[in-house]
Write a protein that binds this DNA or RNA. Sequence first.
RNA 1: GGAGAGGUGGCCGAGUGGUUGAAGGCGCACGCCUGGAAAGCGUGUGGCUAUCGUAAGGUGGCUCAAGAGUUCGAAUCUCUUCCUCUCCGCCA
Length: 426
Amino acid sequence: MFDIKLIRERIDLVKSGLTAKNVKIDLDKVVDKDKILRGIQSKIDDLRNEKNKASDEIGLLIKNKADAKDKIAAMKEIGQKISELEPEAKLLQDEVNKFLLSIPNLPHESVPVGSPEKNKVVRSWGEEKKFNFTPKNHIELAESLDIIDFKRATKITGSHFILYKGAGARLERALYNFFLDVHTSEHGYTEVFTPFVVNRDSMTGTGQLPKMEEDMYRLEADDLFLIPTAEVPVTNIHRDEILNEEDLPILYTAYSPCFRREAGSYGKDTRGLVRVHQFDKVEMVKFVKPENSYDELEKLVNNAEKICQLLDIPYRVLMLATGDLSFAAAKCYDLEAHAAGLNKWLEISSCSNFEDFQARRANIKFKGKETKKPTLVHTLNGSGLALARTMIAILENNQTKEGDIIIPKVLRPYMNGLEKISKKEV
RNA sequence: GGAGAGGUGGCCGAGUGGUUGAAGGCGCACGCCUGGAAAGCGUGUGGCUAUCGUAAGGUGGCUCAAGAGUUCGAAUCUCUUCCUCUCCGCCA
């Protein structure tokens, strides 16, 4: 939800922010509607005031067994006037709200302005893996090792779904367990395990609705949605709550599968695990005081980076330009892992500060000694990490000439000590 | 899924049409008391929004699960939806 007050008071600022995000919206229209609405509303409020006062008088008259007929008749008229104005006010209010829900967040001033080509590499870590043979891609590797069955996944459900098998399934499970363990024991997050199906209010709270409904899997009979990311249920944990200032920051981490219809987004770079309709992810979510949110964003990125480092995955950190920012984000860093087989940089994490954008939609505030009035929190979230693409990096970067996969050391305890995934002896 | 009972402020809990934003209690904050604390006593204690004010704050509207309706007037009456509890059924 966009802040109507900001539009009223700083429309120039809003306009330039939206232009940077390459969004064309006629703000003047909503300014007019808002003005008219407030005019009508204050008329209604005055009439109601009159009504309320008279009601008390009528009550008193009746109590004293006096005649209240004239008063009652007069009140009937006022009631009439009110009910004439109300539908108009409601209509305007709905229009204004709908409009405000459709306006994306403004970018932070530190974000480079422009199209995705302006994305800035802020740092990188590790060396791209080199081999003295031609590295295979993850599809070839996984199929020859029989750890992913793409064909049968398609039979079971459809294209772009995954069936992990044997050591592949075990590796998947090892990865998200490892991620959760690092975030809970080293980074101070509290683990949560949420519903993977959410209602419309939750989807609106984090900003997926109303604009992105087409990209979501929806359960029509119940009007519920499969979550596209754990961000949705986790951020909505505190929807419609006023938190205690001393409880902030609140840090959660959660494993969940993520369901994405990816409507109309097939391309030729989407083979194998690169772009799928269901993948696993461990998400980190933060609720923080506004003044700390940009420090918390840096920490969040570092938490995701730490995972890559422990797995020895070479990566780079991109600061997204205004034109590449998502609907709700004010600032966002992407982590891209290098996958040696595809020889590509793959987005495996996206860490964003939403400032108070989601908090306003989801009505999440805090109150404390410093802040007597309830104040919107800032929310952040980041992947730590997204699994399908991390799997690509692991498979492709750790392959041997024979087509085996060396298991990263940190994962071996999760793999029952297994050091290497090899072809089964025939 | 069937039958019944409910959803009131941070919590418990009164309230079945008229000065009820809502008794009472708990909790919390501040003050008094105390060497200090407890107890006791006193005072205060929701949110959203509009408007006036530099501000503290004032004034008004909304808010008793959500939405619609009846009425001059609704926490109280009617309808719909959601949720909780008890019993039955089904089930991992």
